[in-house]
Design a protein around this nucleic acid. Structure first.
Lengths: 144, 144
DNA sequence: AACCAATTTATAACTATTCTAAACACCTAC
DNA sequence: GTAGGTGTTTAGAATAGTTATAAATTGGTT
């Protein structure tokens, strides 16, 4: 009706085609998960995303959050960032970039500058192809 | 007695001073764990190390393996490599280097070439100091 | 020998993730 | 419309890795 609702619709359509372009069937759950995750560039754990989806009033199980994130990763729509044994983040920004991780605060921050391409193309092990370059620079607070 | 035992003793002394230089009290368990881990440059999970120590005939609990690895990490004697939510490796080589990880085979391989220092020193977040640079290039088999 | 702090131990607890099998939703054919 | 089939979701159980707990052990010091 008004311009706000028009934007809403457009955003929904944008997300729908994002999924269907990858051959992903549209379901209520996948839509609300995608809506939440792709609302902005962000780093979320599966549990954080699960809570956000609940806050938004949607009834989605945690198993579906995991299933859907796994599907989105496979389709290249999100990127997994493994920080440690009990911290996996899902990054809604799949463009080639890196991260700072503050071990004191738990903050994960984007690095815009890219790693020199010559380095990342340097002599892969025989019989392998590049999948993804994961660069995490761990920092700590200078004055703890 | 013979040259083999001389080397053995020397190796034990080398490891003892490695630990005591860091203010680590020497115990039977810490010695056998260090012996196993520092025998060569290698990437081991806590569980693999636990099994190796058992194979060596030593009675060490898994909790001690975790405690000791945590202590060694804190003292800078080993480096943790977080591959995914259920794969943490401990690298007996703490020199500045990076890794290839083959997602198909699970192999973790050293990269000798270093990341250009200018990049890793580039604009840390305010109030933070560098801890460690973790670069993992994930590859997959070209012909699966 | 007695004491004290540090360490180790078995086991329980915890967390993140994956698995399982049943229920559900949606599409197509009849 | 209803039956059947495929894909999806679900709750809950199961698993794996790791951390916490509290008692027992060790090693060094008076």
């Amino acid at each position: 009706m008004n311009s706000k609702n028009d934007r809403q619709t457009t955003q929904q359509e944008r997300i729908d085609s994002l999924l269907s372009d990858q051959g992903i069937n549209l379901t209520r759950q996948r839509r609300v998960i995608a809506d939440t995750l792709f609302a902005r560039n962000q780093h979320l754990t599966a549990d954080q995303l699960f809570e956000m989806v609940k806050q938004a009033g949607a009834r989605v199980s945690k198993a579906t959050v995991y299933n859907t994130l796994g599907l989105f990763v496979k389709k290249g729509l999100v990127r997994e960032i493994f920080i440690d044994a009990n911290r996996t983040f899902y990054d809604s920004n799949t463009s080639h970039h890196h991260h700072f991780y503050n071990v004191d605060t738990g903050d994960l921050i984007d690095i815009k500058e890219r790693l020199a391409p010559h380095f990342v193309n340097h002599e892969l092990p025989a019989g392998t192809a590049m999948d993804v370059v994961d660069l995490v620079i761990r920092v700590r607070n200078s004055h703890p």
